[in-house]
Amino acid sequence: MFTLTLTLDSLSIYIVAADIVILLSYVLYLFHKKRELAKATQTITEFITDYFTHTGAEVRVSCYQLEGLRRFVTLIESQPLKRFRYSNVLENNLIAHIFQKTGNTVEKIYWRFPVVMHRDAMLEEAKAEVETDDAYFLDVQNATNGSPTYKVSEASWDEFKGST
């Protein structure tokens, strides 16, 4: 037969209680960091959405934290608009503005401009010639409506000067 005798003096009770308190405080610290991360991603997402809502652009924003760092990466999805043609200029201002307002560092902004058009839908649109408000699509449509063949011929210097 095996007998185990355990004596608890005040020092061992204090050590066990201290271990339990340290363990619980660490668990609470982990939950706090997780909530802080969720709040930071939500703050960045809401800020970018509001930023573009004031300009009249409809965007969907996703925000992700980089591994082990206090930096974030965002994904902005929008319809292809001419004002986003030079989005790299907008990125620097937006990153600085996010840091200034929320205190969070955005490492990189990725843009996504999905265009869902099937061949049949494109043919129907070409036939219907639906007018659009976006100048970007008008430029592309005008470029594609031009003649597909090139015409090369000699011209006099006066004709050249008159055409420019």
Results as ranks from 00 to 15, higher is better:
Val59Asn: 00
Tyr14Ala: 11
Val16Gln: 09
Leu37Phe: 02
Ala128Gln: 12
Pro80Thr: 05
Leu123Tyr: 07
Pro80Arg: 14
Arg85Ser: 15
Lys34Cys: 01
Phe113Tyr: 05
Thr5Trp: 00
Ser87Ile: 07
Lys82Thr: 14
Thr105Val: 15
His118Ser: 10
Ile15Asp: 13
Leu66Trp: 04
Ile15Pro: 01
Trp111Ser: 01
Ile20Met: 06
His32Arg: 08
Tyr51Leu: 09
Ser153Cys: 06
Tyr29Ser: 11
Phe52Ala: 04
Ile109Pro: 00
Asn142Tyr: 01
Gly68Ile: 03
Lys101Gly: 03
Lys127Cys: 04
Val27Gln: 12
Phe137Gln: 06
Thr74Arg: 00
Phe84Glu: 01
Gln42Met: 08
Lys108Gly: 00
Thr102Tyr: 08
Thr43Gly: 04
Met122Asp: 03
Leu37Pro: 00
Ala57Gln: 13
Asn142Met: 04
Asp19Lys: 07
Ile15Gln: 15
Arg60Leu: 14
Arg70Phe: 02
His54Pro: 01
Thr105Cys: 06
Thr5Phe: 02
Phe47Arg: 03
Ile98His: 01
Leu75His: 07
Gly103Arg: 09
Arg60Glu: 14
Tyr150Thr: 10
Glu154Asp: 11
His54Arg: 12
Thr5Val: 08
Thr164Ser: 13
Leu37His: 05
Asn145Gln: 11
Leu94Gly: 05
Val73Thr: 14
Phe2His: 13
Lys108Glu: 10
Leu138Lys: 11
His54Asn: 12
Glu107Val: 03
Thr7Trp: 02
Phe47Trp: 05
Val73Leu: 15
Glu36Gln: 12
Phe84His: 01
Arg70Asp: 15
Glu125Pro: 00
Val73Tyr: 07
Ser10Ala: 13
Lys33His: 08
Arg85Ile: 14
Ala17Ile: 08
Ala18Ile: 02
Glu58Gln: 06
Gln79Ser: 15
Tyr26Met: 10
Val116Glu: 15
Cys63Val: 15
Ser10Gln: 11
Met117Gly: 01
Leu81Arg: 15
Lys82Asn: 15
Phe113Trp: 07
Ala121Gly: 12
Arg35Lys: 10
Lys39Gln: 12
Glu36Arg: 08
Arg119Gly: 00
Ala38Glu: 09
Lys101Val: 15
Val116Tyr: 13
Asp50Lys: 07
Phe31His: 08
Ile13His: 02
Ile95Ser: 06
Thr74Asp: 00
Glu124Cys: 03
His32Cys: 03
Asp158Cys: 06
Val73Ala: 14
Val130Pro: 00
Glu46Thr: 11
Ile98Asp: 00
Arg70Glu: 13
Thr3Ile: 10
Asp158Leu: 10
Thr55Asp: 11
Val27Lys: 08
Thr105Ser: 12
Thr55Trp: 06
Ser62Arg: 11
Leu138Trp: 06
Tyr150Met: 08
Arg35Trp: 06
Asp134Phe: 07
Leu6Ser: 07
Asn88Arg: 15
Val115Leu: 13
Phe113Glu: 04
Glu125Gln: 13
Ile98Cys: 01
Tyr110Gly: 03
Asp134Cys: 10
Ser62Ile: 06
Phe113Gly: 03
Tyr51Pro: 03
His97Phe: 02
Phe137Ala: 04
Thr132Arg: 09
Gln65Ile: 04
Ile95Tyr: 04
Leu23Lys: 11
Thr49Pro: 00
Val16Asp: 13
Leu66Asn: 14
Val140Gly: 01
Ile44Pro: 04
Ser87Trp: 10
Asn88Pro: 04
Glu154His: 09
Val130Asp: 02
Leu138Gly: 08
Met122Gln: 08
Phe52Pro: 02
Leu94Phe: 04
Ile76Tyr: 05
Phe99Asn: 15
Thr41Phe: 02
Tyr110Glu: 14
His32Pro: 00
